[in-house]
Write a protein that binds this DNA or RNA. Structure first.
Lengths: 198, 198
DNA sequence: CACCGGCGACCGATCGTTCGGTTGTCGCGA
DNA sequence: TCGCGACAACCGAACGATCGGTCGCCGGTG
């Protein structure tokens, strides 16, 4: 948002806005299926002009994944995620995770689709696994302290929990009414069940 | 399984086994990132030999997606999915969906990652949406008949339900002990909740 | 007039696909 | 039993297209 900002009437792009354009294209077609030509066309300039602002395709991916991971790991540093009984911390994390997912939707979407083809993708995958592992151990802690969910296998519960939350990216689109209630709704459903017991 | 079957000691491939090889590669690297060279190398023959058995890359994708969709839509034709109260039908479908997901893991995995770049992919996406819509209307029916889950928004419940079930492909791997209990475990968790209520 | 954003042309590499030809094995008539 | 035509399986080489990325130039503005 600083400097660069226009010498005159000529349109000027910073790498931040071009990143947003690129991530949108990556999500629409998939990273591998999206060419630099696609990206530059979406930005309204030629491919060579596009390269004047960004250093390459994989660097764009790295920046996007970094942003998604920063959002997720930021949750774990909040005091409500570190203090109190495991179950309360878990519920807070789930709630905040839904918020981050929706606020940083394009970036987290890209993160959740990474396959591990390049070093950058493998780095992102490893970081993501570390995040999931934190949640899994929190579930295990809650079970160890006898907080009700003793009848479930902790690792399975953790995987289904993460899967449920992450699946939001498949259908959530910003700007629809009722979005602000989503985090609470999700927490309630993973607590009470999605479908009533038999 | 008939005819073709070997003129002699020379190794012989049918398009079915080559499809299995191809789908495994597609899932490992992503469809777009997997070259025909990758596929033929994984099959142990050259690229041109590979083309002797299959008609092309997209045709392989089509066959794989067809198989996944056949498995899923087959569930809806079962009597337990068509008769009885909506809630019981829903639970049956979820249970069977987990089974199909695990039994046809590679094919369903491929289906759930399709982005819609080609006509084949858009066809698969449309069929998948039709399947999800069936489930969503079943959830709505259950709500309409007053079967307990009236306090949730039906479309949200349906989406989270599908998301939870589909997320299994992210971590399930065949051959691990306790796999046969998975469908019941999943049904129980989406009924009772993954995490205990506050 | 210096310089920045933008451009067209082009690079080597790799993509999916095709083609012509070789090898190996089978069925079958002599 | 032998030999031979037919054909499936396989391969190396190459096709045009497109990939990510580079280069030199150009026009407008401060």
């Amino acid at each position: 948002m600083r400097e660069v900002r226009a010498r005159g009437a000529r349109r000027v792009y910073d790498s931040e806005s071009l990143l947003a354009v690129a991530v949108a294209e990556f999500n629409a077609r998939g990273y591998d299926a999206t060419s630099m030509e696609d990206l530059s066309r979406a930005a309204g300039i030629t491919k060579s002009s596009f390269y004047h602002h960004v250093s390459g395709k994989e660097e764009l991916l790295r920046m996007a994944l970094q942003r998604a991971l920063d959002g997720l790991f930021g949750i774990l540093e909040e005091s409500a995620a570190q203090d109190g009984p495991p179950l309360a911390r878990l519920r807070h994390i789930v709630r905040r995770q839904v918020q981050v997912l929706t606020n940083e939707l394009p970036y987290v979407t890209l993160l959740l689709r990474v396959r591990g083809n390049t070093e950058t993708e493998r780095w992102a995958l490893a970081r993501r696994r570390a995040f999931d592992a934190t949640i899994a151990s929190l579930v295990a802690d809650a079970v160890a302290e006898g907080q009700v969910l003793a009848h479930v296998e902790p690792s399975l519960a953790a995987r289904l929990l993460s899967g449920t939350v992450n699946s939001i990216i498949e259908w959530y689109r910003p700007g629809r009414p009722g979005s602000e209630a989503l985090p609470d709704e999700v927490v309630r459903m993973v607590s009470d069940g999605i479908v009533p017991p038999a």
